[in-house]
């Protein structure tokens, strides 16, 4: 694939064996270019979360091919031995709930990953502060997660997902707990970050408020993806 991003070809995931086997993903094909934000939508049980878990190297697909950045990570079997390092270095996660570490302040929540990887604390914190500035939340740098609003927490979670400059960010219902205004603000931030850091972002969502903002959308039904052109509505 040219220039990184995400490419998925013929991904298949089967749970169980024999008569009780369930094909959660039957035929998933997806491309997300660097700097692009795509939506992944579908009804409950359609396979969204399973696809996210496969992409996040949390569960192993049954067959198919996945490429993150310029690296084939799965081709009918994992091509990477250290999946933990893959998740740490190549994939950023943003969840429905921010799941910030409650006993760390905003800066350290963002700086945690590099600090755990051995980067000196002050270097990691400087990097975190730069991201917090980019997300316009630097004034809350010393606050604890419990002191933040839902929107602020989600911005911190995005900053945490971006701290290692991963080529890919997987966002699982990132606007679910937010009102329209804050939800759109989060999507705007994701778009800005995608452009700024050349990151490919997949946003799994049910949220009708943000679906019109995607230029491309993947519908997933019964484990099969269908690509659609989205409205790509501009932010005011």
């Amino acid at each position: 694939m040219e220039g990184g991003g995400i490419r998925i070809e013929g991904l298949h995931k089967r749970y169980g064996k024999g008569e009780t086997a369930v094909d959660a993903l039957k035929q998933v094909d997806m491309r997300v270019a660097p700097g692009e934000v795509v939506g992944l939508i579908g009804p409950s049980g359609s396979g969204k979360s399973t696809l996210l878990k496969c992409l996040g190297a949390v569960i192993e697909p049954t067959a198919g091919r996945m490429i993150l950045g310029n690296e084939v990570i799965y081709d009918n079997g994992w091509k990477i031995t250290d999946l933990r390092a893959l998740r740490r270095d190549k994939i950023g996660f943003v969840f429905q709930a921010p799941y910030l570490i409650p006993f760390l302040d905003v800066t350290d929540n963002v700086a945690l990953l590099p600090m755990l990887a051995g980067v000196p604390n002050d270097v990691a914190r400087t990097k975190a502060m730069a991201l917090l500035q980019a997300l316009d939340i630097q004034h809350r740098a010393q606050a604890m997660p419990s002191e933040l609003s839902g929107g602020e927490q989600q911005r911190v979670a995005i900053a945490r997902g971006l701290i290692n400059r991963p080529p890919v960010i997987l966002a699982d219902e990132p606007t679910a707990p937010l009102d329209s205004e804050r939800a759109l603000a989060v999507v705007r931030i994701l778009n800005d970050m995608a452009r700024q850091f050349e990151t490919a972002i997949v946003v799994v969502t049910h949220d009708e408020k943000i679906i019109p903002t995607f230029k491309r959308i993947y519908h997933i039904r019964d484990g099969i993806t269908h690509e659609e052109i989205g409205e790509g509505r501009e932010f005011d």
Partner: peptide, 16 residues
Amino acid sequence: IREIAVLKLIGTKNRT
């Protein structure tokens, strides 16, 4: 548990 799951997902080592 939820925080630990997040830590593991984002690549924190078991040792940590």
